[in-house]
């Protein structure tokens, strides 16, 4: 198979690292070669963050290059727009319909763009979800990222059972059940 390119984009602190760990774990468990690349340190302090995941028979570079992403998982609208040019022609974007104002918007130096999702839908295959709301219904807003992952999961090469197993192996023991539920909500959407 050709190497599959996944990106997770969002705002520092939104849980991109946990999501990428699950993606890495499932690729490994399924016998693929896999590489991930993440951002640590300063950029994580509320800044724009991007994580790359690549899996296939044999993977060389750990980053996804512009115009090459099969799936982009965006935890925030503006970040979806920022990285949209990384998407392949027939790639898929899953967007958590949430707005987090960057400091440049808060101070009035810039304005938060309107109609991001509509604009992205014109050229790309886009799925949206208000995962924050769904997660709150579950009783823990933190698992919103696993709901988004559940939607993205349908565009990758693994079974639902494999996903649930890897989630069980990756998340903290106390949160296994709620994370599995969150995944299923996304997966069934």
């Amino acid at each position: 198979m050709e190497t599959k390119n996944i990106m997770i984009v969002g705002v520092g602190g939104q849980g991109t690292l946990l999501t990428s760990r699950i993606l890495g774990g499932i690729a490994m468990a399924s016998g693929y070669d896999v590489k991930l690349s993440e951002v640590h340190g300063m950029a994580q302090r509320g800044g724009s963050v991007v994580t790359f995941v690549r899996y296939g028979e044999s993977v060389a570079e750990p980053i996804v290059e512009e115009g090459c992403a099969d799936v982009i998982i965006a935890f925030e609208r503006l970040e979806a727009k920022r990285y949209a040019h990384f998407l392949k022609k027939d790639g898929v974007m899953i967007i958590n319909d949430q707005r987090i104002d960057p400091i440049t918007v808060v101070t009035g130096a810039a304005t938060y763009p309107e109609g991001i999702i509509e604009e992205l839908q014109k050229d790309n295959k886009v799925f949206t979800v208000n995962a924050m709301e769904e997660a709150k219904k579950l009783g823990n807003s933190k698992v919103f990222n696993i709901i988004v992952l559940g939607i993205a999961a349908k565009h990758m090469d693994y079974s639902k059972e494999q996903w649930l197993q890897v989630i069980e192996n990756t998340v903290p023991p106390k949160t296994i059940e709620i994370n599995k539920k969150a995944f299923e909500i996304g997966y069934e959407m």
Partner: peptide, 11 residues
């Protein structure tokens, strides 16, 4: 796309 920058900030 031209989008507002999101630099790191104090928590």
């Amino acid at each position: 796309s031209t989008v507002p920058a999101r630099p790191p900030i104090l928590c």
